[in-house]
Structure formats: structure tokens, C-alpha cells
């Protein structure tokens, strides 16, 4: 599924990464626990409610570069800066984690496990 379609489906805001919206996404992982994100061998899109610099840094370390922040949490300037340095995409949507995951799953995005 194209990122552009995901933005539409979730009625999301593109915080950064406008230039990558034609890329395809197949897999997603949802967690607020960065400890868990660090155990992934693959590099899925991340859906998370944890919205701070550590979220972005953890993704950088785990080489995940597409992040969906749920529940309209405020994406700060320092998060955007770090994301820009690493050519990441950050989408922000107002839906809950549950609804976001449900919509994406229904649309064919695959889980890792």
C-alpha cells in the first residue's frame, strides 16, 4: 500500500517526508515500548503512541524510517530535526492505536508475527 493511501485512510497529517509518499509499505508493528522495537530484526512501519525524541532515536537505531504517531500527540521541533537528518517519514493521526491498526490491517498491511 502506498504511503499516500495510508495518509488518506487515516486522515493523517504528514509531519515530514512528503517526498516519500509514493513508496510502498507492506508491514507494520505497533508498540509504545521502545525496548520491544529494539528487538525487531525487520524494519516495518511503526505505529506508536509514544511521542518524544526517544521514539525517533530508537527508530534510527533500529533502522525503521516510517512512523505513525496516533492520538494527535504533538510532534516537536527536535523530533522533526532528527527525523529530517535520517530521511524519515512521520505521519500523525487523531485515531486511537486500536482504530489505526484496525484500518491498516483491513487495508492489507501485514503484521510481522
Amino acid at each position: 500500500m502506498k504511503l499516500r493511501e495510508i495518509v488518506k485512510l487515516l486522515d493523517a497529517k504528514v509531519c515530514i517526508g512528503e517526498g516519500r509518499l509514493d513508496e510502498d509499505v507492506e508491514h507494520a508493528f505497533a508498540s509504545d515500548l521502545m525496548s520491544d522495537v529494539l528487538t525487531l530484526k525487520d524494519t516495518p512501519m511503526l505505529i506508536t503512541g509514544l511521542c518524544n525524541v526517544q521514539t525517533i532515536r530508537t527508530c534510527d537505531m533500529a533502522t525503521l524510517d516510517i512512523i505513525i504517531i496516533v492520538r494527535n500527540k504533538k510532534v516537536t521541533e527536535d523530533m522533526l530535526e532528527l527525523a529530517e537528518d535520517n530521511d524519515m517519514v512521520i505521519l500523525s493521526c487523531s485515531y486511537s492505536m486500536f482504530k489505526t491498526c484496525g484500518l491498516l490491517y483491513q487495508a492489507g498491511i501485514q503484521p510481522l508475527f
Binding site: 515500548l33 525496548s35 520491544d36 528487538t39 518524544n52 530508537t58
Partner: peptide, 12 residues
């Protein structure tokens, strides 16, 4: 609160 503390770090 920072998303850590699951006791997964050392095993990881």
C-alpha cells in the same frame, strides 16, 4: 515513560 524498562535490554 520514555518507553524503556521492560527488562529486554541485556538479553537483546
Amino acid at each position: 515513560d520514555m518507553g524503556f524498562g521492560a527488562g529486554m535490554g541485556l538479553p537483546n
